[in-house]
Simulated scan of single mutants.
Amino acid sequence: MRLDSPGLVTDLELLRLQGSTVTDHGDHLVVRTEANPTFWWGNFVLVLGEARSAEVDRWVARFEEEFPDAQHRAVGFAQDGGDTDAWAARGWEVESDVDLATTAVPTAADAPDGIPALSAGSKLRALATDDDWEQSAQVGARDTSEAQREGRLVFERRRVTAQRGLVDSGRARWFGAFDGDRLVARLGIVRLGDLARYQEVVTLESHRRRGLAGALVRAAGEWAFEDPAVGQLVIVAEDGGPAIGLYHRAGFAEVARHVGVSRPPA
């Protein structure tokens, strides 16, 4: 199965590196992450083409056949467009993602006038300690309701374990912005041959609009390009989301689009 999207290509490479299996069925892939069964986009069906209204039942059935015990539902489409309204009409969430890429070190935006990026004594650095990684899991679960928080933390801690494995392998690094000892923003980047893929760009609401995400994106890009094999940086953002402008200003340009539809547990 040939994919033109560098975002999807690197998604699959990253999943394989973290122990997921990817099975090719010709016109679709089945992606399975047994170590983290509640990871929606680690347990899903990826369709080669675009969404078509006549095929909704087919792909729902295909997902349920492969994941009979799953509470969620998730189907990706490698091509943008198609009839996603047919999915939305059945109560599925539809997300269009944009792949952006650059061959240069990203430009870090300055913080707005009068707003300090970090208070005195704070800094950007790589995540290293157990506490750093636990804080990263907590940041990942930041917007979860109290009723769902414990389950979300289980998922985030499993994901952190996989991320630390990538760091330990030498392929990856996760960077954080710390205000004192508190992690307030973080992201990862993974070298995958000639591509390097950003992961999990998050800034706490209390520290947004200070230039932190841009500074982290630049720091991670500098680290990625220390490997002469890396020729391009890839990042994926939600179409219409607030991050798109940041990445454009940093020097990234759109190279592809793809769509995902999902339904949370009932």
Rank of each mutant, 00 (worst) to 15 (best):
W174G: 04
V190R: 02
D181I: 03
G188L: 07
V167F: 07
R173F: 07
R186H: 13
L166Y: 08
W174Q: 10
W174I: 00
A172D: 08
A172E: 07
R164Y: 08
A172C: 11
V184F: 03
G180F: 07
D194V: 11
F175R: 05
G188F: 08
R182H: 13
R186P: 00
G188C: 06
A162E: 15
G193R: 07
A172V: 07
D181R: 12
A162M: 13
L192F: 02
A162F: 04
G180H: 09
R171S: 14
V190K: 01
R164L: 10
A172M: 10
F178C: 06
D179T: 04
R171Q: 14
D194K: 03
R171I: 02
D181V: 08
A162R: 13
D181S: 14
D194T: 12
L192R: 09
W174R: 03
S169R: 12
R171E: 11
S169E: 11
G193E: 07
V184S: 04
G188Q: 05
L183C: 07
L183I: 04
G165K: 10
G193W: 08
G193P: 00
F178K: 06
R191T: 01
F178Y: 09
D181N: 13
G188E: 02
R182M: 10
I189M: 14
V184E: 07
A172H: 07
R171K: 15
